[in-house]
Design a protein around this nucleic acid. Structure first.
Lengths: 212, 212
DNA sequence: TGCGGCATCAATCGAAAGGTGGAGCCTGGG
DNA sequence: CCCAGGCTCCACCTTTCGATTGATGCCGCA
């Protein structure tokens, strides 16, 4: 066992308390070094480029508008980019998939115990994928039932339905005809095994296909 | 300015990271002393009785069954009970009302900056009510529009709508005629200021009038 | 190159949901 | 005692939704 250079960390979370907590937890590990923490996704993108960091711990839900997944995508797009470990409160499918598509190396829940957190950081620093057991299970489920996979456009329509819009309103918002909206809905109902917009929203919500 | 005895704190949150963060943030204040932190609501009730604490910082959502408001009620029921400051992530009406009814002295959001947090703890220790500005505003809204209060039966109907049931299914489940279900819905729409079942569910969800 | 999935649109028809305007019953508070 | 408000129900009508069928263009993959 040779002396390793420390793992350099960047923390991105809009909750001051969580930032302080992550710092406190991670700095007890002798081989970790928290180089900075930021309260915004934009700040994370900026500092990830300018500082020399190995792993970014990224929250997905920021108070503002820019999403953590978007920031993740921007960070991982660069050459020699740091690994991004997504750290979020709830484990909905949309979030997980968005994060993985954005190039996240791992996905953790905020209720993870410190040891699991530290282990995930080391795994990520080594370039390997780090998924919380809960998340891994959920992904397995996803693979087994391909029916649950809505297309991008379908998800978009369903989200607007969940927001309470009528077919007419959705068609205007997405610059579609009502026929198209209905067509998407028919496919959505078939995939979810339901027969009305409200039950589609209910099913999609429990399965974490849309955000509330 | 005389030397005050320190404010003795108990932290209750199921997220290790949040506990560490609260500890880190609050211990920088010289007049605060964190005497313990616990990961469960039950533990909070227990320690609040056995230790000499002034203020309990209580999360509402615990991993298991939601006991935060219940624990608050149990703690505040005793003689010489500490003040309970509820600290939660999201600001839904049901949560706020439940906490206040349970006897919470204050209600804070987890994204509060450290200064606000410290100020609220001091306010609570002094026995005064401490509400985050966002929360206070929301409560004012609540008072101004008593319409937002759905009756028991209306809430019941709306919950079933949110679960994806049709009027026919709801009428069977509640042993009503469809006319009655429709009648309830009309009143619900009026109170929420909407005109369809899906938008009623959306509105009620954001206002925390129904679960999930 | 052709097949399948996705996205787009159209027409039609019956069923469900929403809008309006009632009405009777019961309970609790002024 | 009466009135307000919650809960239950009815009829009639309009609008929206869902189901069905069918069509087009695009793209990726075998």
């Amino acid at each position: 066992m040779t002396a390793q250079p420390p793992v350099r960390l960047l923390l991105a979370d809009d909750h001051p308390v969580v930032r302080a907590g992550l710092r406190a937890v991670l700095e007890t590990e002798p081989d970790f070094e928290v180089v900075a923490d930021v309260p915004t996704a934009e700040g994370a993108v900026d500092l990830a480029a300018r500082l020399d960091v190995d792993v970014v711990l990224m929250d997905l839900q920021f108070g503002g508008r820019m999403l953590g997944s978007q920031a993740t995508a921007e960070i991982t797009a660069r050459d020699g980019a740091p690994r991004v470990l997504v750290l979020t409160t709830y484990d909905t499918d949309v979030d997980i998939l968005a994060a993985i598509e954005a190039g996240a190396t791992g996905y953790l829940l905020k209720d993870a115990p410190p040891e699991e957190l530290a282990a995930a950081v080391r795994t990520a620093a080594a370039g390997k994928s780090a998924l919380a057991p809960t998340i891994a299970l959920r992904l397995m489920d996803r693979m087994r039932t391909p029916a649950t996979a809505l297309s991008r456009r379908e998800t978009e329509v369903l989200q607007l339905v969940a927001d309470g819009l009528s077919n007419a309103q959705i068609s205007k918002q997405l610059f579609l005809s009502q026929a198209t909206v209905k067509s998407h809905l028919v496919h959505i109902y078939a995939k979810l095994g339901v027969d009305s917009r409200t039950s589609a929203v209910a099913a999609a919500t429990t399965q974490g296909l849309i955000r509330r």
